[in-house]
Design a binder for these strands. Structure first.
Lengths: 115, 115
DNA sequence: TCACTTTATCGTATATTTACGATAAACGAT
DNA sequence: ATCGTTTATCGTAAATATACGATAAAGTGA
């Protein structure tokens, strides 16, 4: 019989998974790229650069805002979206630490116990 | 009126989003950690280490297998899961490149055009 | 005030995800 | 052959995600 199943997930695991979720759609991968590259970040421009309707782009922006990766500055009737540098640095570091640890693991290759 | 909306997503964007999706659940974040650390990788052990039922763990393993991050060696009635080193290196590099480019962007902070 | 622009939200439809119990399949041991 | 162990799959339920048209909200400018 299996031992007691009390172990929950840590805050770190939940946070990293949440960041990954925010980046788990090509549109959001691309939005982050565009916002970091283009010197103009109105929602309307994003809509023309993506194969999606305005309402859908707005939803993706909301998801990126939810985890803090971007923020929007209201500028008259427009909204200027931009990358949140602090959050970007945090997610960069978190993923880097995670992958570094995985790569350092000593059980990466299968040690199939052939008999 | 917006310009033609012909732009699709690139293979790179789709692939990275897919890797992110595979890591978008705390259970799968943790499974990768466990498999890289622990010198024994039976599915049954994973079940005892996670607050989830066996069927659910099996589903999460399937998702990680789908993107190639892990593989399972059948060993009698058991299955020995392990991290796929090549895929891990690829996902590590892909995320690193992505975040590096984002951080290099010249439009990270909002230049709200106040009038 | 009245259009016009821009973006968020609502309503809705569809698909996917997550979770679990039950069962099947595959193997080892007796 | 039968039993116990281990894991995948099936069936199902509930929640979440994705997409879009329509509409609301908020500001600009005539």
């Amino acid at each position: 019989m299996p031992t007691a199943k009390t172990q929950n997930f840590t805050d770190d695991e939940i946070l990293l998974a949440d960041f990954a979720k925010a980046l788990s759609h090509p549109a959001r991968i691309k939005i982050m790229k565009i916002l970091s590259e283009i010197n103009a970040c109105m929602c309307g421009e994003l809509v023309t650069l993506l194969p999606l309707a305005q309402a859908t782009v707005s939803q993706h922006l909301k998801e990126l805002k939810r985890v803090g990766l971007i923020s929007g500055d209201i500028d008259g009737p427009k909204v200027c979206y931009c990358v949140n540098v602090t959050a970007l640095q945090k997610v960069t570091k978190d993923f880097q630490n995670y992958f570094t640890k995985l790569n350092e693991g000593d059980n990466l290759s299968c040690k199939t116990k052939k008999k």
